[in-house]
Amino acid sequence: MLHQKPALANPANAPSARFFPHIGIAANMRVLDVGCGNGDLSRVVAALVGSEGEVVGIDRSEDALASARSEPLQPGSAPIHYRTADLSGELPDLGLFDAIIGRRVLMYLPDAAATLTRLARLARPGTILAFQEHARADLPTGAGDLPVHRQCYDRAWDTVAAEKGDVTLGYRLAGMVRAAGFAIEHARSEGVLIQPWEESFLPTLTRVMLPRMIEHGVVREGEIDLDTLAHRIEDERRAVTETIFWDMAFLVSGRFETIE
């Protein structure tokens, strides 16, 4: 759900693998990864565009960029150049791109539509613009009661809202991409699932988010015992025994149109 990416694989990233490799990103392209964080998505597209391509990753967090730079690339991948940039303001001179992508970044910006307008200035005719964003829904749900999972879900989204994140942006993503001058080619949503045979990522997610929850008053200091929470999550999973529908991902891509 969130821009932090903990060590345990986050199911919220799984839709990326079923989306970004299939929207037209190809060898030799120049790609901009917007809000790249620790570079997970940058490395995926670097492998797609190959050694003759180029990837530029931008993020405002120097710590995230330092982490990104420390990660190795797959053999044959494009070079990745990481740069500091604040997406809420004017962008540095980055040149033009064949594809502009991002994951869970627009929802954290004060004016996502204005950012998309600025990104359109970096597009050539035919440039691909693609984002994965999320939105709050009446979740989680499954084949049984999920009060502990619902509490984790509400705390996470309440924190995003307290940080002035846009908890409904996913629903409006396709319209925003279109308004920025891109003809929609793909627009879909995908459920993020927690399977009974997989280790739950929720204890890790809560641990990563806990300082933010406390900072914004979503929980009090000492209110959450992480070990106890992990046991309660596992007990609830065993009681339900089936797939849990955790979150909604919205995946949209379009191509830049020029007005004659």
Rank of each mutant, 00 (worst) to 15 (best):
L2N: 14
A9N: 08
N10V: 05
P11L: 02
A12W: 06
P15H: 05
S16V: 11
F19P: 02
F20C: 12
F20E: 03
P21G: 08
H22F: 13
G24Q: 06
I25F: 09
L32G: 03
L32V: 00
C36R: 01
N38V: 13
D40L: 15
A47S: 14
G53F: 01
I58E: 10
I58L: 04
S61K: 00
E62K: 05
D63G: 02
A64I: 05
L65D: 02
L65R: 08
A66M: 11
A68M: 10
R69N: 12
S70Q: 01
L73R: 00
Q74A: 13
P75E: 06
P75K: 04
P79D: 07
I80P: 07
T84E: 15
A85G: 07
L87Y: 08
S88M: 07
S88V: 08
E90R: 01
E90C: 09
D93A: 11
G95Y: 06
L96E: 15
F97K: 01
F97T: 03
A99R: 04
L106Q: 07
L109W: 10
L109D: 06
P110H: 01
D111A: 07
A112Y: 09
A114T: 06
T115H: 12
A123Y: 08
A123C: 08
P125G: 02
P125L: 06
I128S: 00
F131W: 02
H134I: 15
A135S: 10
A135G: 00
P140A: 10
P140E: 07
P147G: 02
C152E: 12
R155I: 13
W157Y: 12
D158A: 15
V160L: 11
G165Q: 00
D166M: 10
Y171Q: 15
R172C: 06
A174T: 08
V177T: 09
A179M: 00
A180H: 09
F182Q: 00
V192K: 10
I194C: 12
Q195E: 13
F201W: 14
P203D: 04
T204M: 05
T206C: 04
R207F: 00
L210Y: 04
L210D: 02
P211M: 09
G222D: 11
I224W: 06
T228Q: 15
A230P: 09
E234K: 04
R237D: 09
R238P: 07
T243W: 12
F245M: 12
S253Y: 01
S253A: 02
